[in-house]
Design a protein around this nucleic acid. Sequence first.
DNA 1: ACGCGGCCCTGGATGC
DNA 2: TGCATCCAGGGCCGCG
Length: 270
Amino acid sequence: MPELPEVETTLRGIEPHLAGRKIVGVVVRQAQLRWPIPDDLSAQLAGREILACFRRAKYLLFALPNGHLLIHLGMSGSLRLTSESDPGRHDHVDIVLDSGKILRYHDPRRFGAVLWLDGPVSEHRLFAHLGPEPLLEDFDERRLFVLSRGRKTPVKTFIMDNQVVVGVGNIYANEALFMAGIKPLAMAGGVSRQRYARLTLAIKQVLEKAIAEGGTTLKDFVGGDGKPGYFQQQLNVYGRTGEACVKCDGVLKEVKIAGRSSVFCARCQR
DNA sequence: ACGCGGCCCTGGATGC
DNA sequence: TGCATCCAGGGCCGCG
């Protein structure tokens, strides 16, 4: 379910309840996620204090004295704090805190991950090749321009490449390209530096706005505090195939690019 | 090196 | 109502 704004919303919702708390127990009901949950997870976590919570790309990381707990929400995952001891269907993992609250991982499709990292996060294989965070200054149009030269891949696929920039998922790739007036199928290597400047700004703006709104409401997305996000109503193209373009009133088209739905206005995006 | 398609999995929507 | 088919927010991996 989650794109970067949903992950960030989740982090902000749960962080105040986790930092400084001690983990008193771990319950794994289903270990078969994208990768198996390691057997020693409980031994690594139990009795340890959560020193800090942070995010890198769409990975949530929880710093403990002896390493990091990593959680990825995949396509359908969510994390919430609860006081109810009875788990529901697809509630795969509980992390029980000394406050009496439970951090509960729920993931119907099980594309997510719960892992234990021993060493430095940045050296882990999942992190070693990640591009910059889209909301930080080291993500700029120069990077998009330079890395795209000679690339024939569609610009939409290019900005969804985690080695180029992290955290741009399908929804916001569509939205950012619409905002920037760039056709998703345009060859990445043929997009001008000036247009990459527009696209860079659009990516930052669409993500910042979504975070400010508390994440997109998709299916049953809820933040860590259980409140739904409210961004869905503000999507200009994603999920609006066949409807009218908000800028020119033309009919929005849909194509598949690398297997992902891509919605655009053929008149506004070139 | 690059670009693409497959695949991991469940469930909701759609259609016959 | 029931069953089959398709589709979904991610991202690693292997193939050509």
